Computed example of a mutant assay.
Amino acid sequence: MKLRDIAHSRTGDKGNISNISLIAYRDDDYELIKKIVTEEKVKEWFKDIVKGEVKRYELPNICALNFVMYDALGGGVTRSLSLDTHGKSLSSVLLDMDIETGLCKIE
């Protein structure tokens, strides 16, 4: 199953920092997402893009996680040579992550 099957996402940026919110469609899925979508998994998923730290913030009242990814935009919006200098497509990249709900692990 893809992460997009149980959640949606939004992306923002500030300088060379990108943040991705991951919002569960259902309360039960939030608990699952919280277990399997860790800082380490997100860092590994974006290993070719994110050169800095990944911090996760939990927002249980809205069933969301927010990942702040440092050194993630190729030097920042005005310096990056990337086609997507703001990193808006990163939310789609995260939602493409395969998850195994039975094993609670990300492939």
Rank of each mutant, 00 (worst) to 15 (best):
A24S: 13
K2F: 13
A24R: 00
I33R: 02
Y30K: 03
G74W: 04
K14H: 10
C63Y: 04
D71Y: 12
R26W: 08
D84P: 03
E53H: 11
I6T: 06
S89F: 12
E107C: 10
S18W: 01
R79C: 08
V77Q: 08
L32D: 06
V50W: 01
K55M: 11
D29M: 05
M69R: 02
G52D: 03
G76S: 10
I36Q: 09
K88P: 03
G102T: 13
D5P: 00
K88A: 07
D98K: 13
T85W: 01
N16F: 01
C63A: 08
K41P: 06
F67L: 09
D71G: 09
I62L: 09
S21N: 05
D96K: 15
L81S: 11
K35M: 14
R4L: 11
G15L: 05
S80W: 00
D98P: 03
S92T: 15
S80L: 13
E100I: 12
I49H: 03
S91W: 02
N61Y: 10
K47C: 15
D48E: 15
S9F: 02
L83C: 13
L95M: 12
G12Q: 08
A24M: 05
D27H: 07
L59T: 08
D98V: 04
I23M: 13
Y57R: 14
L103G: 01
I49P: 01
L90S: 07
G87H: 07
P60W: 09
I23L: 12
K43T: 01
E44I: 14
L103E: 07
G102D: 05
G74F: 08
G102R: 07
Y30L: 05
D29N: 08
V77Y: 05
T78L: 15
C63N: 13
L81P: 00
S82M: 13
S18K: 03
T11C: 09
V37K: 04
S18D: 04
I106G: 03
D13E: 09
E58L: 06
K55V: 12
M69I: 01
D71K: 15
S9I: 09
N61L: 14
A72K: 01
L90N: 02
K55G: 09
E58I: 07
L103N: 07
K47T: 08
C104Q: 11
I33Q: 01
